[in-house]
Write a protein that binds this DNA or RNA. Structure first.
Length: 271
DNA sequence: AGGCGTACCTGAGGGC
DNA sequence: TGCCCTCAGGTACGCC
């Protein structure tokens, strides 16, 4: 499940491999995953030059020469895989295949068909609803704390809301809460200042460490080169039901919050 | 407006 | 061996 560290890893890989290339054309095998609709999408993207690749929240942002942006969301199982010229078979479940002038290509593959690829105009405010970047200067303690005020929703549900803080998914929300010793079901606005401090810090810390390890491959995540991440081996709680808490030894529990599996330690996470 | 439940999908894995 | 059922989860959307 690509979250911020996985998307960052993919974006960096793409920046290194496809920047400077020219898009010859797009083959669309599953029309519903692109916008605008296929004829226009293909018309607009053909001939574009790749100016660079970045990330915003969980979106991969491919900057194009015209000022347009190709904005990709991988949802749960989406992949962006670069293939060198001469590769015969596309990545399995390829829904969109971009071919470059040098005959190399970019496969947008997704077995689950949830991922989306959107060609946004230069001035299109596609990220208007996307929240704070947790690894940017904007993510000050005061701004973060201000977002928590007055909310009754469980803190874990708050962390998953991309309109507030962008980039956390189920894995890193669970990990950040464990590190901050906060109970996932705690009402957001009720967190003490100390707890807020710890959470502000643990969010950044866990994301930075995960990026260093090129993300977590809990299921089948791979980066743009098809390589798995390494952070799945360093997860403290996610997916560890019944195993010992790394801090206190008590068994990690799995509960459900907002229809999602939530792993945590009943002894360590009490605040 | 905010919060909640459900639909969207298909592969994997468990049970029998 | 094979079939059926359930689960996984990010986001959009409809509803209250």
């Amino acid at each position: 499940m690509p979250e911020l560290p996985e998307v960052e890893t993919i974006a960096r890989g793409l920046a290194a491999t496809i920047s400077g290339k020219t898009i010859a054309g797009a083959a669309i095998r599953l029309p519903k995953v692109v916008s605008p609709e296929p004829p226009l999408f293909q018309q607009q993207i053909a001939g574009e030059h790749i100016a660079g690749v970045g990330r915003r929240g969980k979106f991969v942002v491919v900057r194009l020469g015209s000022g347009r942006q190709l904005v990709v969301h991988l949802r749960m199982t989406g992949r962006l895989i670069v293939q060198p010229a001469g590769t015969t078979d596309p990545e399995p479940y390829t829904n969109v295949l971009l071919t470059f002038a040098d005959r190399s290509r970019l496969c947008f593959a997704d077995a689950r068909q949830f991922g989306r690829m959107r060609l946004a105009g230069p001035e299109e405010p596609w990220a208007a609803e996307v929240g704070l970047e947790p690894l940017s200067e904007d993510f000050s303690f005061d701004r973060f704390s201000g977002l928590l005020d007055g909310r009754t929703t469980p803190i874990k549900v708050f962390l998953l809301d991309q309109r507030r803080v962008a980039g956390l998914g189920n894995i890193y929300a669970c990990e950040a809460l464990w590190e901050a010793r906060i109970r996932p079901g705690r009402p957001t606005g009720a967190l003490s200042k100390q707890a807020r401090r710890r959470l502000h810090s643990s969010i950044q810390s866990v994301l930075r460490r995960a990026i260093e390890m090129r993300g977590s491959s809990v299921d089948d995540y791979v980066d743009a080169e098809g390589l798995r991440g390494g952070f799945q081996n360093q997860l403290s709680v996610y997916g560890r039901e019944g195993e010992a808490c790394l801090a206190c030894g008590r068994s990690i529990v799995r509960t459900v919050l907002a229809q999602r599996g939530t792993w945590w330690c009943r002894r360590c996470q009490r605040r």
